[in-house]
């Protein structure tokens, strides 16, 4: 892949060069050495929703896929996966509210505007604006939580669901112990009452990228784009609100679904990091797939190399598994 092309992959406005490209991107089941240039092309759009503006990057043509990133990333995290999917799909990479370049609606005392339900509803509106009432959803980390909530709340909208390296919120908290708190630090730190976590994040915006739930092999330009979010007090507050919602209302929403036997109807793929917490924490529950089978009728999945951020670190294998799942 030429440098010029790589620049195009990243973002039009703020990023001027890119230094580290995973080797694996060059080997997606064929000998071509790079993604054809036309597929690297994406367009950015801002979509007005009821009380907000949502930023998307759009690649390719074909049946619609919605890609939802997590913490502490932006839609930029799909920069390798999206062009590969663009061969056969319309790929919509979104910054959910609060994140990246999307708007930051005011929160409320109960944190409802940053529940996964509110975030998912907004993404349904975004897809409707784009002309899609049925699509497949792929979510990583926090985006995985928004995605499974979308599948539960809007079953008729979701063709297929892929969730990367997370289990449902109520299961996360339900099995929480010291090991959990030590590992999944954002859950316990960022859900604390304002302004404590806000102050910590804003005090050291780069610090989140120096641990297993932040770090990546990206170069300084991508890091700069990611870090931007954590320099903005409004965004930092929104993200903390999202974690507060995850410690309160999101759990209630999960529990209500279990109570009412509301299940994920679409076929579901779960991928998790080899050697990551999900690989060992939940053995008694049958591993992450055992947990997801409590929620979904048709679950498949496996572990994958690359750490928590495998869509960025191992995009070729991630895409291969995704395409297999989406086209089955």
């Amino acid at each position: 892949m030429e440098r010029r092309t790589v620049i195009g992959v990243i973002t039009a406005a703020t990023v001027s060069a890119f230094s580290s490209t995973p080797e694996s991107l060059f080997a997606l089941g064929q000998k071509t050495s790079a993604v054809p240039e036309a597929l690297d092309h994406f367009e950015t759009t801002e979509i007005k929703t009821k009380d907000n503006t949502i930023f998307i990057r759009r690649y390719g043509q074909g049946p619609p896929l919605l890609l939802v990133h997590g913490f502490p990333r932006t839609s930029l995290m799909w920069r390798y996966v999206a062009p590969l999917l663009a061969r056969n799909y319309t790929v919509i990479c979104v910054d959910p509210r609060g994140y990246g370049r999307s708007g930051v609606p005011a929160s409320t005392e109960d944190h409802y505007p940053y529940t996964k339900r509110a975030m998912a509803n907004e993404l349904v509106d975004v897809m409707a604006h784009l002309g899609f009432s049925r699509f497949s959803v792929i979510g990583h980390d926090r985006g995985g939580r928004v995605s499974y909530r979308l599948a539960l709340d809007h079953p008729e909208k979701v063709d297929r669901l892929a969730v990367f390296d997370v289990i449902p919120i109520s299961d996360g908290w339900g099995h929480a112990d010291a090991k959990f708190a030590m590992t999944y630090w954002p859950w316990v730190l960022l859900s604390q009452k304002a302004p404590l976590p806000e102050s910590y994040l804003l005090g050291a915006p780069g610090a989140v990228f120096g641990n297993p739930f932040g770090q990546g092999s990206f170069g300084p330009e991508v890091r700069a784009e990611y870090t931007e979010t954590y320099r903005d007090p409004a965004r930092v507050h929104a993200i903390c609100e999202e974690y507060r919602a995850a410690a309160t209302l999101d759990i209630e929403h999960d529990k209500k679904d279990l109570q009412d036997s509301r299940r994920i109807k679409s076929p579901m793929l779960h991928l998790w990091a080899i050697g990551g917490p999900l690989d060992s924490f939940y053995e008694q529950q049958g591993g992450p797939l055992g947990i997801w089978r409590k929620w979904a009728d048709n679950v498949q999945g496996q572990s994958i190399k690359g750490g928590h951020f495998f869509p960025e670190e191992n995009p070729a294998e991630t895409t291969e598994l995704l395409i297999k799942f989406l086209s089955a």
Binding site: T45, E46, I47, K48, T49, T53, D125, A128, H129, L130, G131
Partner: peptide, 8 residues
Amino acid sequence: FFGAEIKV
């Protein structure tokens, strides 16, 4: 029916 206009 499809929602408000898209800003570019």
